[in-house]
Each structure stands twice: as C-alpha cells, then as structure tokens.
Amino acid sequence: MNPFTYARPDSVDSALDELKAQPNARLIGGGTNLIDLMKENIEHPTRLVDVNRLPLGGISELPDGGLRLGATVTNAETAYNALVTARYPLLSETILAGASPQLRNMATNGGNLFQRTRCYYFYDTAMPCNKREPGSGCAAIGGYNRIHAILGTEGSENQPTACIATYPSDMAVALAALEAVVQVTGSNGERSIAFADFHRLPGNEPWRDNTLEPGEIVTSIDLPAKGFNQHHTYLKLRDRASYAFALVSVAVGLEMEGNSVTDARIALGGVAHKPWRKPEAEQLLIGREATPDNFRLVAENLLAGAKGYGHNTFKIDLAKRAIIRALGEAMRSKV
C-alpha cells in the first residue's frame, strides 16, 4: 500500500473541505474494495477521509412514503432493517446475495455504489486496461472474458469498444429496479441523481464508473414509496452457491391484478458496465398476462443488440433464461 494521511471529519462540510484541499484524497467507508485496490497498487490516494463519523447514518421514513438509507449505514444493517425487509424485500434479498457476512458488516451503502469492476485485467497491472490506464488498450477483448459485459459495450465510428468490464454490485441491481435516487452534496450544493443516471456506460471514458463530480459526497440513497413487496425476486447465477460475483443476475419487481401485470421493473447485473434496465422492455409486460410467452418477449427485447466476445457469449442465452425464470418466480412470490 502506498503511504497516505488519514482524516476523520465529523461534519459533511469539513469532509468536503478535505476533498477540495487534496484532489487525490478518497473517501473511505468500509474500505472493503478500496483497501484491496490499494494493496494491488490500482488505487493510490494520498489522503483517506473516513466518513464513519459523518452524520449520514440511520434509515428513516421520507414524507412521500419512501425510505432514506444513510450513506454510512452498513449493507448488513440495511438488509436486516425491519422497514427494509417489510417494504423492500427485493433490496434485502439482493444485498444478502452479495459478498460474505463479514464484508456486509463492513461495507456501507454509499461505498457499495463505488465498487470497481472485478475484471481480472483491471486488477493486473502488467496488462493493458483502459479503465486503469486510459489509452493503454483492453486486454479483455480477445482475452479471457468469461465474466465480461454483453450489453452497452459498443464504441462509436471513430472509437472502437474501449472496455467490456461489468459493474460488480448486487445491491445496485435492486436499487436500479426500485428506481432509487442518490442524494449527493458538493461545494455547489446538493443534487439528486436518478439511479439510472448514476452509473454510466464506458463509452470513450471507461475510467469513469459514475457521474459523480469530483469533490461530491453521497449522503443517502432514497427509495421511492413503491417497493414491490408482493411480487419480487433476485435471481443470481454464479459459479458457486455463495460468495461469488454474478455471471448474470436479475432483479424483478411486479405489481399484479389477478394474472395481469400492472407494473414491472427488471434490472440485470453482470452483463454491463452498469445495472441494465430498459423501460421499453418492461412496457411489453404492463397490461398483459404473466405468461411464459410474454416473459420470453421481454427477455428477447432486453437482450436485443447483445454482443458476445467469445468466452462470455453464453451469457446472452443465460440472461434470457434467467429473465424468464425470475419473472415466473416473482409472479408466484407473495410474502
């Protein structure tokens, strides 16, 4: 690990000052990813600003019927919180599908959003990686890419595909389905970022994972009132039964009247640089019967334009089947 200095401010304003004073400062919550990346010589901040004494804890009800998840609340506390399990069981189930109990006890809600990809080439400093070292190339394209992205990897006319990394978080897949809102604060004040706009596709700047501006701090993740607590599922397909990242995952929330779908949310993990959602595909289901044929239409639409890179091409079929299965499970589930 490189040398750094450490600060533990107790107000958001002083944390913002810290970030302003040292552009190479990084926030640390649980540290479960950041410290690992520092040991691997991928990240080398010169100052760490510990957020654990900022007044950003707690889970509280919002006036609009939603729920505010404090940025410094741990993933474990969130998953087992009574309000979350009753009203947003999809989120609870999704968090518990990720990492290990030890890591969930450390990792914070804010920090979860800033996990970096687990692409092997991103972690291997001997290999080119446009995300780690802009302009150096992508070793995953044409390399071992079994865990890599199949959606949203297109380059432009002048710029070939720059990065096929996936975003690793499970929690974020549920937050995408639930249309969470990320509250941030910076020296220019506060702003709200819709979850769909928080993470980004690699495009020509694969080193940018999200749309946060330098010096901004996530203060909370807000859940809208609609929690899909009757019909929901998180289906995570991985190489072992527990403690592994998703090859493909599907978060589903449905609202139903009889066998008719009145609202639908579907988000995919493990397939793209961000949780993958396509409202157009969800529309195919709304107002229709929940039947395997209709689920198949949705799956085909969600995977339209998917591109395999060799080892990961199996994910295209796997994702379609996972969507159909997850929609069936969500249809039947009723807590």
Partner: peptide, 13 residues
C-alpha cells in the same frame, strides 16, 4: 460484536 475481515480495514479506524 460484529464479525469483519481484519485485513480490509485500517487499525486507525
């Protein structure tokens, strides 16, 4: 009382 991985956290915290 909560289990954590001691390798991924700083003593100073």
């Amino acid at each position: 009382g909560k289990r954590i991985n001691a390798c991924l956290t700083l003593a100073v915290m």
